[in-house]
């Protein structure tokens, strides 16, 4: 089972790194949103609004990028091949989740430094800020990977995806932002204990729901 998950994640990563289309688009999109925020928020209020803006960049980028994992299979016509492969649906889902997590880690490594430079931010506890964003993104990835399969057959799915994803991941959005604010203000791990408990339990619940329903989501 672990082997199958790894195979699927590696297949997607290999495919992605051959063209880098999703990664490049996500990166460009993140840069352009950061620039927009940079010109639209007055300099004096940056320090207070920065955690929210940084997290918004990741939300927008994730929304565009994460659903690509399944959309690409549909566009290339390989979804049926994936379904008929001798792997269980939960392996497919977990493989895609890991693939998206790798994408997010790469994005974080590039976007966070650029963002800090662009806004000239002072971050109290950088490792903790990274940890909070990564955990928040993990929750986002788990939900969006499985919900993106629901819109595969829908009309105007790009418009529909944020409509159905944002309310479901709202607990992640609000918790991550408060954790991020704490980390940027120089908080330590104990300060964001409650946020972590909420995030991790949300991730576990959503992972269970995803694994239980994914078999149905992949049907024809």
């Amino acid at each position: 089972m672990l082997r199958h998950i790894k195979e699927i994640a590696i297949k997607d990563l290999r495919l992605e790194f051959r063209t880098k289309s999703t990664l490049n688009f996500m990166l460009l999109f993140a840069l352009i949103t950061s620039m927009m925020f940079s010109i639209s928020v007055p300099f004096q209020s940056i320090q207070g609004t920065a955690p929210g803006l940084l997290w918004l960049v990741f939300l927008f980028v994730g929304l565009m990028g994460f659903s690509r994992a399944f959309l690409r299979e549909v566009e290339l016509g390989t979804l049926d091949g994936l379904k008929s492969a001798p792997v269980s649906p939960s392996d497919i889902l977990l493989g895609k989740v890991i693939y998206n997590l790798v994408l997010v880690l790469i994005m974080e490594a590039i976007i966070v430094p650029v963002f800090i430079g662009l806004f000239d931010l002072e971050i109290g506890n950088l490792p903790l800020a990274f940890l909070v964003i990564t955990t928040g993104n993990a929750g986002f990835v788990v939900v969006s990977s499985s919900l993106s399969t629901l819109v595969l057959r829908a009309r105007s799915r790009e418009l529909l995806a944020p409509l159905i994803m944002f309310p479901v991941i709202y607990p992640v959005i609000s918790t991550t932002i408060s954790g991020l604010r704490m980390a940027m203000g120089g908080g330590v791990l104990m300060d964001v204990k409650n946020e972590f408990i909420l995030l991790v339990s949300f991730i576990i619940i959503m992972l269970i729901v995803s694994l239980l329903t994914f078999e149905y989501a992949l049907e024809d």
């Binding site: 919900l147 629901l150 309310p167 479901v168 619940i205 729901v209 329903t213 149905y216 989501a217 049907e219």
Partner: peptide
């Protein structure tokens, strides 16, 4: 099917 799965997710 899609809306049933979404209802399960949304129930949180």
């Amino acid at each position: 099917r899609s809306s049933a799965i979404f209802a399960v997710f949304g129930y949180v």
